[in-house]
């Protein structure tokens, strides 16, 4: 009988596979019923054992358990679409991820080098329930809440909640907040964004365009 944390880990990997398929533009042209059946079939098949293990077990062997933040980002647009179709009067749109990605990028740029051995300070240690770390996260979400950065609040709150409930096999809160794939994506997108802003503000660049 698999552990609860193996089931959540495999389930999260399967959700990530389905969510990534939904990001493919071509899926927008598939009739809704067929799309639901197709994605449902992918979800189930990815969890069924082929040979010794399900396909998601091989993916999980390489990727580890994806952070809650990654899952929220992957599901952000599709879930909002579904909700807006279910409740057309509310007419919600997906929250913008820009502020969240910048926060992830700056945090990752400081966190990973230190956690991987530069110097004697290890920020990863704080993830084992350090009350100051939890307080810092609380202050961040309160600030983000006042600024209406819904996605930042949602990611940190769901990560903290799932960590408190021992959702994954990791007992470290950082593993719920961040993962290297998310960090790389956030660093690349933030660098591109800042690069574009810099070029747009640079008068030399503007004049060279005209």
């Amino acid at each position: 009988m698999p552990n609860f944390t193996d089931l959540t880990g495999l389930g999260s990997t399967a959700i990530a596979v389905v969510a990534m398929l939904m990001q493919i533009p071509a899926t927008a042209h598939i009739p809704k019923v067929r799309l639901v059946v197709f994605l449902g079939a992918v979800f189930v098949l990815s969890l069924l054992p082929f040979g010794e293990m399900p396909i998601t077990a091989y993916i999980r062997g390489v990727t580890g358990d994806l952070s809650i933040t990654t899952l929220v980002l992957l599901l952000n647009v599709p879930v909002t679409k579904i909700l807006s179709q279910l409740f057309p009067r509310v007419g919600t749109t997906a929250p913008k991820a820009r502020a969240l990605l910048m926060l992830v990028a700056f945090t990752s740029a400081a966190f990973y080098p230190l956690a991987l051995g530069i110097g004697m300070f290890d920020p990863y240690r704080m993830g084992y329930g350090d009350p100051f770390f939890i307080t810092a996260l609380l202050l961040i979400i309160l600030f983000a809440w006042f600024k209406k950065s819904t996605l930042i609040v949602l990611c940190i709150v769901l990560s903290t909640l799932t960590w408190s409930l021992n959702w994954y096999e990791s007992s470290n809160l950082w593993d719920y907040l961040l993962d290297p794939f998310l960090a790389i994506y956030a660093l690349v997108s933030t660098t591109r964004l800042l690069g574009r802003r810099f070029l747009n503000r640079n008068p030399l660049h503007k004049s060279s365009k005209t």
């Binding site: 919600t92 329930g129 350090d130 009350p131 939890i134 996260l137 609380l138 979400i141 809440w145 209406k148 819904t150 609040v153 949602l154 709150v157 769901l158 903290t160 909640l161 960590w163 408190s164 409930l165 809160l173």
Partner: peptide, 22 residues
């Protein structure tokens, strides 16, 4: 309402987190 529900969820998550930490 969405912002309010988010705050309720945050209160629940951080209460559990501080309890676990303690």
């Amino acid at each position: 309402l969405r912002q309010f529900l988010l705050l309720v969820l945050a209160a629940l998550a951080f209460s559990l987190a501080f309890y676990k930490s303690s």
